[in-house]
Amino acid sequence: MTNPSMPAPALLAWAGRTLGARPSVQDASHPQKNSRVWQLTLPSDVRFYLKVSPRPLMYERETLALRHAAPALGAGRAPQLRASSAEHLALLLTAIPGRPLRQLTLTPAEEVRAHRQGGALLARLHAAGDVSGPRRAEAEQALQAAADGAENHLRNAGDRVTRAEQKLVRDLAEQLRALPPLPLAFIHGDAWERNLLWSKDLGQAGWIEFERARFAAAVQDFVPMACGTWADRPDLRTACLQGYGRDLTPEEQHALKCLAALDAVSCLVWGPKLDDPHVTARARRTLDRLVKGVLA
């Protein structure tokens, strides 16, 4: 009987052949049931991560990001792709220094440093992708695609969203469609404290988990933090955007409000489905703040 907390034998054999040694294996998955990540440690104590993507699209996005954009962040600031297997939807990644901010107890000054560096790294990532040809068309359609998903999310959320909240979400989706063209970028797609690493020893930040990376409006990368940490810590918003090198334009700020509403409804669907109370609570709080008019 296969141990579900261990990689499949064929997958582990592939990783061992690639690394040139049989590694020890430790489960490093997130609590969600679709997360499959293992820490591999060689006899030399060098660590790697073996990750199986939940879906082919996520595998393709992360592979593209790690090959063509993430290297722009610099050494130790993002994993390097050692090998990939389309057959297994598997990625073999180098380890980078630090632990997720969500797992650390930091001083306010350290948090500010981490978010400032995180913003600077996002600026590098945003500039790294070649936004031309079909990629430009993909990026230009990203906000329209987000607005188009509103009705599906509302239907799936059901009675978790009140009638007043449904109307607000629909209104903001229509406002999103009416916005002028916004700055485009190659975005991380899941930029929040679970994926922002901080090394206390090095005083260095790094980003992981690029499976949602894509060409889109640059502002879309700030939605998770706007719906999460920034709600209580405006100083971290300031630090992140200082690192990013510019503030959001008025049009981007309005887009952020609209996107926050769509993100909240989506999270009210996926939070319970993935049994992730953090995501569900973030969504509920965002909608409450939007109804009260305090998320502007």
Rank of each mutant, 00 (worst) to 15 (best):
Y49G: 00
L122S: 08
P108W: 06
R282V: 13
L259N: 00
D263N: 14
Q220V: 02
L50H: 01
A255L: 10
R113M: 14
A173W: 01
L50G: 02
G245P: 07
W230M: 02
R47M: 10
P183H: 08
R99P: 00
L106E: 08
D276Y: 08
L179G: 08
L176Y: 05
D190I: 09
E165T: 05
V52I: 15
A146N: 09
P54Q: 09
Q144L: 14
A147C: 10
T41H: 06
L104C: 04
C267Y: 12
D159A: 14
A150M: 08
H254K: 14
V46N: 09
P97D: 11
R214Q: 15
R17E: 15
I208V: 15
L274Y: 13
T107W: 09
L179N: 07
F222A: 08
F222S: 02
F48H: 11
A142H: 11
Q175R: 15
T229N: 08
G118D: 04
S35W: 06
A164E: 15
N156A: 14
W38Q: 06
L66Y: 03
L91F: 03
K167R: 15
T63A: 12
L154Y: 06
G228F: 01
L236P: 00
D130C: 13
R102H: 12
R194T: 13
H153L: 01
T107P: 03
D232I: 03
A231I: 13
Q26K: 15
C227K: 03
P9Y: 07
A72C: 09
E138M: 13
R22N: 09
A231D: 08
P234F: 03
T280F: 02
E62K: 02
L64Y: 11
S44I: 01
H68Y: 12
E138V: 11
A264K: 00
R285F: 10
G129F: 04
R61A: 12
P224M: 06
A21T: 12
E140N: 06
P71M: 05
P180F: 11
G149V: 01
E111I: 05
A260H: 00
P234I: 07
Q242N: 12
A69P: 01
S266H: 11
G228W: 02
A147W: 02
E211G: 09
A114T: 04
L104G: 01
H153W: 14
P224Y: 02
T280D: 06
A75Q: 14
L81F: 01
G133A: 09
P54M: 07
W38C: 03
A95V: 04
G118Y: 06
D190P: 07
